[in-house]
């Protein structure tokens, strides 16, 4: 129950800056990205205020990717280890792909691992373990996890990945259908695409537009109109 002394200071979906008071009174509960200071709930980073009843959350608008269990990420092979590969994935921490998580084939002792994944190869993998010190294991076992052949990879704002994917993948399938490109979006803010060069450029343009405007309402309508205008 919101008491009379509980006052909401900001509007839902408004941009708030660190330290800004979002609400006062013990009736409001600080959610992720916010903190309580005495009577008031304050923003703990730059983001969009999201008010859900009594709980105030902050939706980040920028920031690096923080590795999370079960995320599907795109990474690049940067080193070959004794029994696996080191994968870089657009964040401060690299991950390890071990042999047993990489292939079901029998690999003889001392075999040349670069015949499976060579330096510079791009892969879609799933995070299977994250420690408190951010030591990360990834796996290639699962639907859709594979080596990426050809195409191109672009870096996007990792916090915008949910918008690029859309509800149950609606946004990314909209772009796929309109451009005929094959697209894989990694949770870590790397997007791989393959298709006609002109179509790929359209995908890049569309994704940049999503990054720019996803904090505003009516995104899907604007993007489908944009794609139509581009004649894709």
């Amino acid at each position: 129950m919101a008491k009379p002394e509980d006052v909401l200071v900001v509007k839902d979906k408004s941009v708030v800056v660190p330290g800004e008071a979002l609400a006062t009174g013990m009736g409001y509960i600080p959610g992720t990205g916010t903190y309580r200071d005495g009577e008031s709930v304050q923003a703990g980073r730059l983001g969009l205020a999201s008010i859900d009843g009594k709980v105030i959350k902050l939706i980040p608008l920028s920031g690096k990717y923080l590795p999370k269990l079960n995320d599907r990420v795109i990474g690049k092979v940067i080193d070959v280890l004794l029994t696996g590969w080191r994968i870089e994935m657009n964040c401060p921490y690299s991950s390890v792909l071990t042999l047993k998580d990489a292939t079901t084939e029998f690999v003889a002792r001392g075999a040349d691992l670069t015949q499976y994944f060579a330096l510079g190869d791009w892969v879609v993998a799933k995070i299977v373990n994250v420690t408190s010190q951010k030591l990360i294991d990834v796996s290639m076992k699962g639907p859709g996890l594979r080596k990426l052949q050809g195409g191109r990879v672009i870096v996007v704002n990792p916090q915008k990945v949910p918008r690029i994917i859309g509800k149950e993948g609606s946004m990314v399938s909209l772009i796929k259908d309109a451009t005929g490109c094959n697209i894989v979006v990694g949770q870590n803010g790397l997007v791989w695409m393959d298709g006609e060069p002109q179509a790929q450029l359209k995908v890049v343009e569309t994704i940049r537009k999503i990054e720019d405007e996803s904090h505003l309402t009516g995104l899907t309508d604007r993007i489908s109109a944009f794609l139509q205008k581009k004649g894709a």
Binding site: V17, G44, R45, G63
Partner: peptide, 11 residues
């Protein structure tokens, strides 16, 4: 720092 999305409790 705020623009970079670093968690900070105040400016």
């Amino acid at each position: 720092l705020a623009d970079a999305g670093v968690a900070m409790k105040d400016m």
